[in-house]
Design a protein around this nucleic acid. Sequence first.
DNA 1: TCATGAGGATTGTTGAACAATTCACCGATC
DNA 2: GATCGGTGAATTGTTCAACAATCCTCATGA
Lengths: 231, 231
Amino acid sequence: MTTSEGLEALAALRGALERSSTAERVADALRERIIDGDLAPGARLSEEALGQALGVSRNTLREAFRLLGHERLLVHRFNRGVFVAVPELEDVVDLYRVRRALELDAVRRADRAPQGAVARVGAAVQEGEAAAGRGDWWGVGTANMRFHQALAALADSPRTDEVVRRLLAELRLVFHAMAAPRDFHVPYVALNRRIHRLLEEGRLQEAADELADYFDTAERQLVEAFSAEPG
Amino acid sequence: MTTSEGLEALAALRGALERSSTAERVADALRERIIDGDLAPGARLSEEALGQALGVSRNTLREAFRLLGHERLLVHRFNRGVFVAVPELEDVVDLYRVRRALELDAVRRADRAPQGAVARVGAAVQEGEAAAGRGDWWGVGTANMRFHQALAALADSPRTDEVVRRLLAELRLVFHAMAAPRDFHVPYVALNRRIHRLLEEGRLQEAADELADYFDTAERQLVEAFSAEPG
DNA sequence: TCATGAGGATTGTTGAACAATTCACCGATC
DNA sequence: GATCGGTGAATTGTTCAACAATCCTCATGA
């Protein structure tokens, strides 16, 4: 084999090889616990206690806090500490405003999507159907997130991917803060399937219209849940 | 006056009262120097040297680095240090993809814009005209940024504001990395004026179409500049 | 010319220290 | 009884010094 062949094959692994700092690993761990709801919205994260529990120094922990603060999962109040963010009604509205702009744009331009992007949307739909089949409502929610992440990926834009990932993580926080997340996700599985089918057939505008409807009803439902049980 | 009246009036000031940390102030200073071009793309920022120059400890400086890293103005290479980001061709394309989605959406929905938002667009246009009048091409660029920030603000969405602010800061980096930024901005002043007039008259779709044209030509121009002088 | 180490420089991370600030508690006062 | 004010503990903001881990340079050797 030629040298260039070997080097090219190796270059693909470079991303995986990059070691991550402890701060990033700590941030990953905390992010997971926040998204899973182990750390409830509003909970305060003590530097000393958490640092001791995770076995890292205060300085490193603070770096992790910054990372999650920029993802809006934590709010940092000066001289008061960091807290798990508590989504408000306005946040829900804002989240959906940005999602509408980005995801709808991605769907409408899906004809320029990279190879296999539509297939990944389909995989997320299937994952959601499987979770719904075994009554795993939280798994349905996870699949739903993956579905929308895959929609955003149709734009073939790293920055869109990053922004949407952050928005969806925040949305998980909203689910934890609202009244009855149990029955929220399941009804959307069928709609996701429909959107994916339209994408496969290249009927992009129709897919975008369906998605717009999805946003409208989901937002309305969340707003109602928030009005019922104020934060 | 009633108690609730007074409290409500005071609540509006709360944001301004929040003191900022040293790390944030350091980040502000560095951001300015990067945007103004004093710190060229690719330049390495030594922790020790910079910390000494700014009179802050390494820890604090590293916090500032994280902040700017998340704005993509700095890139952090593990065990190697932080560098001023060097925009590539793909970055230009990606920046414009996201701007198209967000700014066009904001303009199309400008009928729901908050009070005075269109006026702020007009103020940015005027600022650009004034700068062009006195031959201050860099001032024209600054006014241009403010114009687009004002367009994004039509969406009345804090998250849109934040994302667009980051995109525009990155774009400034692109200007520094390209060949001839001097003549780039001025031609767009007239177009900005036209877009603002259409907004005032409520002809939103036409305004969006003009803006889309703007994006197309500006992107093409930048891509050409990059092909001519590869980074 | 190319590979190989050795050494120096820089970053990653920790721990401790001190100042500044907040919070909770407890009297004092009206 | 409620509010105001102050004291002190607890927590955060920031710095400093130290050491390990890693990278880069450069001289050396084949």
